[in-house]
């Protein structure tokens, strides 16, 4: 038993270290600029300056950025989940010529670093006249994504085949099999895909840097980058704005995490995604 207590204490200390940056961030965001770096070991803001949270909405179009991020994130996550499930069902249910080769292409693209295709992908969107819009931030997801195809195929392979055969005998079409049987059964795995992609989209800095120049179209990370460039250094630093904007960029994801925690942990533990 004393050994268990030792490990609890050690883990508690480690937890304090991991949590501290969050506490500091929230506390510092609620202090006047002159106190950003003072009282740093206090877990509450002193002096208290809640007006920072108002100031940040006035300094930058945070609400529009939040809306953009949400909309793009939902589009990215919804399209990738549905299309990946569609393809994954095809891999799991059918036997057809070229299946192994195609599945090898799924595994192959999982290893392909996104950077390799960065320039040509830009040229595609440029040719379509869609650079400068938010479309490139999510639209490629309608074709599914290797990682989720792989994840969902594994899930579908685990479903008993007789469920589908019985439905076929009852006259269900292949689309029915997918939409009425496979999708409802695969809900947990589809939620994993959805929350991972929502997170990935919410994190993304490079695509917004490349594709959107109009600040009205920024996502939160892109907007936060603009705020840092404007207010962190230079003649007139406004640290409280930078910090409050960081809190606003982070908080929604933390909420998503607590709502979908079980799916995140399951997704990482079973598939080994470096989330």
């Amino acid at each position: 038993m004393p050994r268990r207590i030792f490990f609890l204490v050690m883990l508690g200390a480690a937890s304090a270290l991991f949590l501290y940056p969050f506490v500091w961030l929230v506390v510092a965001a609620l202090k006047p600029r002159t106190h950003t770096f003072s009282n740093v070991f206090l877990p509450w803001p002193s002096p208290f300056a809640p007006e920072n949270l108002v100031a940040v909405w006035e300094a930058a179009p945070m609400l529009a950025w939040l809306g953009n991020t949400l909309l793009i994130g939902l589009m990215a996550a919804a399209t990738v989940t549905i299309s990946s499930a569609f393809v994954a069902f095809g891999f799991a249910y059918f036997r057809f010529p070229g299946r192994n080769l195609l599945f090898a292409s799924v595994l192959g693209t999982m290893m392909l670093p996104a950077v390799v295709t960065l320039v040509p992908t830009y040229l595609i969107w440029n040719t379509l006249g869609l650079t400068g819009t938010q479309v490139p931030l999510w639209a490629a997801n309608v074709f599914g994504s290797a990682f989720y195809v792989f994840l969902l195929r594994q899930f579908f392979l685990g479903l008993p085949r007789y469920v589908f055969e019985a439905a076929r005998v009852d006259g269900a079409s292949y689309l029915d099999l997918f939409w009425r049987i496979a999708v409802p059964l695969a809900r947990p795995a589809m939620i994993i895909a959805f929350v991972f992609e929502l997170k990935a989209s919410w994190f993304d800095l490079m695509k917004p840097l490349i594709y959107v120049q109009d600040p009205a179209l920024f996502t939160l990370p892109r907007g936060l980058k603009a705020i840092v460039d404007q207010f962190y250094q230079g003649g007139d630093p406004k640290w409280e704005i930078v910090l409050a904007a960081s809190v606003i960029t982070t908080l929604p994801l933390i909420v998503v995490f607590f709502l979908g925690q079980r799916y995140f942990v399951q997704g990482i533990a079973t598939t080994g995604r470096r989330g």
Partner: peptide, 27 residues
């Protein structure tokens, strides 16, 4: 059923050509 299998493969095939293999060769 084979024809339907390729219907289910269609998004992946298009994505592979347009956004993976194509750009890889292009780059």
């Amino acid at each position: 059923s084979t024809r339907w299998a390729y219907v289910f493969m269609l998004p992946w095939l298009l994505g592979l050509v347009i956004f993976q293999a194509g750009p890889m060769i292009a780059s």
